[in-house]
Amino acid sequence: TTIEWNGTKITVDNPQKAKELAKKIAKKLGLTVKVHGNTITIE
């Protein structure tokens, strides 16, 4: 699972952990999480 935001890509083996990490990042930055299959985008 890949997390993408602002040109940065982070690959996380565990999809559940990836989703939790994305939510934490999005919350800190005041952004939203969008899931597209194996890609999680923070916008």
Rank of each mutant, 00 (worst) to 15 (best):
N14E: 03
T2A: 07
N14S: 13
T11N: 07
E20N: 11
T2Q: 09
T39D: 03
D13T: 12
I25H: 01
K9Q: 09
N38Y: 04
E20H: 11
I40S: 00
G7A: 06
V35C: 06
W5K: 03
E43P: 05
L31M: 13
E20S: 13
N14V: 03
A26M: 07
G37T: 03
N14A: 03
T1P: 07
I42C: 03
T2M: 09
W5H: 04
I40F: 03
H36L: 11
N6P: 08
I42M: 07
I42L: 15
G7T: 08
K19Y: 15
E43F: 15
K27V: 07
G37H: 05
N14C: 08
A26K: 07
L31Q: 03
I10Q: 01
K23Q: 12
T11Y: 15
Q16Y: 13
E43A: 11
N14F: 04
K19R: 14
K34A: 07
T8N: 13
T8Q: 12
K28G: 05
A18E: 00
Q16K: 14
L29K: 05
D13A: 14
K9V: 12
P15A: 10
G7M: 06
E43S: 13
T1K: 05
K23G: 07
W5R: 03
I42E: 00
H36V: 13
T1I: 15
V33P: 02
A18C: 07
I3C: 11
N14G: 05
A22I: 05
A22T: 01
N38W: 05
I3M: 05
Q16G: 08
T11M: 11
A22C: 02
D13Y: 14
Q16A: 11
K24W: 15
V35L: 08
K24T: 07
V33C: 07
K23A: 12
H36F: 11
N38Q: 06
A22N: 00
H36P: 00
K28Q: 09
T41G: 02
E43W: 14
T32V: 13
K9W: 09
A18Q: 00
D13C: 15
K19G: 04
A22K: 01
K24M: 14
I3Q: 06
N6I: 08
T11L: 12
Q16N: 10
I3A: 06
K28S: 09
D13S: 14
E20A: 15
A22R: 02
V33G: 01
T1W: 14
G30N: 06
A18L: 04
H36S: 12
P15H: 13
V12Y: 06
L21W: 14
P15V: 10
K23R: 13
T41Q: 06
G30W: 04
K9L: 08
V33Q: 01
Q16F: 13
W5C: 10
Q16L: 11
K34R: 13
K19E: 09
P15Q: 06
E20C: 09
N38L: 07
T41L: 13
K23P: 01
K34N: 08
V12R: 01
K17F: 11
L31I: 07
T1D: 05
N6M: 11
